[in-house]
């Protein structure tokens, strides 16, 4: 009986190890794809949906040199996501990590990635990888900056670049001091709960890619 349990446990462990190894290979394939993207520039349209921000759609240009070096030339002023998806995922993939496959959902394999470094800013990440080894959705949980998720659409661009990214993130209520804003009427209004965290969305469309 005892040996039977040991055999069963070994088979089960081997199964998990094999699954983990396969998931890690898949993530490394995704990483390789990301790293193989050459420098390029493209036009972008940025749309922001945050409860306390009123801004119209912005257009501009994005210049990609590598995942850590992305420049934006926006006409006027714009709010962009703080953590670039490319840079964050590359940081996660470049460190030691464990990858576990959690099964399939709508033809996407769900893979959870946990960094080995206890001091890593990203606590955990979950990726939905499609049949072309492209990230179609991801959720990242960070230590200090809450969570943020991204949904990526692909429009057949070269190097499998996304045509649209919709990023959802945690954002705290903002209340500026009336003395700074000059909005003296706000004294008679109820003070919003500044610790309340709501969800914000930023949608970026990428088009007219030009590769160097």
């Amino acid at each position: 009986m005892k040996s039977y349990i040991i055999i069963l446990f070994s088979i089960f462990s081997l199964g998990i190890y094999a699954q983990s190894d396969e998931a890690k290979s898949k993530i490394l394939l995704v990483k390789e794809k990301l790293e193989n993207v050459p420098p390029y520039s493209c036009d972008i349209k940025v749309k922001i949906d945050v409860s306390f921000i009123n801004i119209k759609e912005r257009t501009g240009k994005m210049v990609f040199k590598n995942p850590e070096e992305i420049d934006y030339k926006i006409k006027g002023f714009a709010f962009l996501p703080k953590n670039e998806m490319g840079a964050t995922t590359t940081d996660l993939f470049n460190s030691e990590f464990i990858a576990i496959s959690l099964g399939y959902e709508d033809e996407n394999e769900i893979i959870k990635v946990i960094p080995m470094d206890i001091n890593s800013e990203i606590v955990t990440g979950q990726f939905w990888i499609n049949s072309k080894n492209l990230i179609s959705e991801m959720i990242l949980i960070t230590k200090d900056k809450g969570s943020y998720s991204a949904k990526l659409d692909y429009g057949g661009e070269k190097f499998d670049l996304p045509s649209n990214i919709k990023i959802t993130f945690d954002v705290k209520n903002q209340k500026m001091p009336a003395l700074l804003t000059g909005d003296l009427e706000s004294y008679s209004e109820e003070i919003p709960d500044l610790n309340k965290v709501s969800k914000g969305n930023i949608s970026i469309n990428y088009f007219n890619h030009q590769f160097d």
């Binding site: 934006y72 006027g76 714009a78 962009l80 900056k145």
Partner: peptide, 10 residues
């Protein structure tokens, strides 16, 4: 506070 949550361009 805004700079904590966003990258401000412009």
């Amino acid at each position: 506070n805004l700079e904590n949550d966003f990258r401000l361009e412009g």
